[in-house]
C-alpha cells in the first residue's frame, strides 16, 4: 500500500517541545529559518477528540480479529460519542466489558468479527448498556507483550 509521510512525531512532555536551531544567529539579524518553525505532531491530537471523556482499555480475546483488534491491543474509547449502527463499542454483558460491533438494524445486537463467535441478541425488553465507542486501536507490530 502507498505510504505518505505525515511528519516527525515527538512524544509530548510536561514542557513544551520547541524546535531548536543549532546554527549561530548573528546579533541583530533574525534567522531566516524562524519563519519555518512548525509544531511537532502530537499523537493525542489524532486519537483523542474529547480528553475528559476518553478512557483506554485493553482487549483480550480474538472475537474482533476481523476489524483488526488483536488480543493485547489498547483501545481508545470515547464516551462522549453517541453510538450508532456499525460502531465498535464497549458494552456491559453479564457483568463484564466486551468489545463488539453495535447493530441496531434489523434488530439490536452485538456482532463479533470472527466466524467462531455468535452474535449477542437483545430482546425487545432487555437493555443494552454501553460504556463507550471505540475510536482507535493501538496495535504494536514490533513486539507483542
Amino acid at each position: 500500500m502507498p505510504i505518505t509521510l505525515l511528519g516527525r512525531y515527538l512524544p509530548p512532555s510536561a514542557s513544551v517541545a520547541l524546535p531548536l536551531f543549532m546554527n549561530a544567529v548573528p546579533a541583530g539579524f533574525p534567522s531566516p529559518a524562524q519563519d519555518y518553525i512548525e509544531r511537532t505532531l502530537d499523537l493525542n491530537e489524532l486519537c483523542i477528540q474529547h480528553p475528559a471523556a476518553t478512557y483506554f482499555v485493553r482487549a483480550e480475546g480474538d472475537s474482533m480479529l476481523g476489524v483488526g483488534i488483536f488480543s493485547g491491543d489498547i483501545l481508545v474509547v470515547d464516551r462522549s460519542l453517541k453510538a450508532v449502527d456499525g460502531d465498535v463499542v464497549i458494552a456491559c454483558v453479564n457483568g463484564e466489558f466486551t468489545v463488539k460491533e453495535l447493530r441496531t438494524r434489523p434488530a439490536l445486537q452485538l456482532l463479533a468479527h470472527n466466524p467462531a463467535y455468535a452474535p449477542i441478541l437483545f430482546g425487545p425488553d432487555s437493555t443494552l448498556e454501553l460504556f463507550g465507542v471505540v475510536t482507535t486501536v493501538i496495535h504494536s507490530v514490533r513486539q507483542r507483550g
Partner: peptide, 9 residues
C-alpha cells in the same frame, strides 16, 4: 498502562 481495564474481545 499496565493496569488498564480489560474488555473481552
Amino acid at each position: 498502562w499496565d493496569q488498564l481495564p480489560v474488555v473481552r474481545a
